[in-house]
Design a binder for these strands. Structure first.
Lengths: 138, 138
DNA sequence: CCTTGACTTAGAGTTGACTCAAAGGTGTAG
DNA sequence: CTACACCTTTGAGTCAACTCTAAGTCAAGG
């Protein structure tokens, strides 16, 4: 299977602009056909998907470029590749933990507001509770 | 308890620059003492912490400003406040789900690489599985 | 033939959230 | 007295990752 830029754009939900931008950046460089049209291979598509996933969890294009270099080198740098992945995984896990913590805070706050809406009148106490008095850890 | 800008900066891990920037933006506006020094109240600190938490999960300063307006209005817009919170919560939950999905992908990839490092020789199959890369010449 | 989708270069503009700089001035604790 | 933390204004700079524009050319399909 091979794709032209418009097709790949649809598949990856990246814009054509972005795809050309990635090419300029050396991150995703398709072959060209006789008419100089970009032809993305199946491999390119998978790599594009990978990019989308990784940047979706906060990996920078710079890091993706580094990863790409390693991945394409003949020197079998699998340990390095794994190290990058593990490092990023750790970051993502930390992010998840932080998000979950903040989710709890939000849920508490929401509950408090709802209680208040349902007639609790102790506004001062309420405000203190909701906006932080017992959410102060760290 | 009251804090000067340097103290609050330490507590919140925001820079003094940022705190002044937030003031300019109307997001966190402390009182001043007779010498025109910013004096952050306990409430201000709590609000600052809240800002840190929320922006840590991707809420924009714009949204935080809207939240602040609602929160400070006398018109008891608690439903609206809750709506904002719930909306943001939904976003955060979606983000967590996405992150977890990508975590799985990464873990699979890491396992594959490790298997390969430990002597599996089916490079083509492996590469295709991991990134869709195969060893066809490019 | 005409539309569609592709191509080019080069550079400018956007966004959000800072971040810093210059070049002063003031107030207070030790 | 001196150091230090604080204050001011205005505006410029930074960063990543796009996003778009102009102004043109080109090739294939219905």
């Amino acid at each position: 299977m091979a794709y032209r830029i418009g097709e790949l754009a649809k598949l990856t939900k990246l814009s054509e602009h972005t795809l050309r931008f990635y090419e300029k950046e050396g991150l995703l460089v398709p072959k060209r056909n006789d008419s100089n049209i970009r032809v993305y291979s199946e491999d390119d598509r998978l790599w594009a998907d990978f990019i989308v996933h990784m940047k979706g969890t906060g990996m920078s294009l710079e890091d993706l470029k580094k990863y790409k270099v390693l991945r394409e080198s003949e020197s079998e740098n699998y340990e390095e590749l794994v190290a990058i992945l593990v490092h990023h995984k750790d970051n993502v896990e930390a992010k998840i933990a932080e998000y979950q913590h903040n989710l709890e805070l939000m849920n508490k706050k929401i509950d408090m507001y709802r209680q208040y809406i349902n007639g609790n009148d102790e506004k001062d106490l309420y405000q203190r509770f909701v906006e932080g008095k017992n959410t102060k850890n760290e």
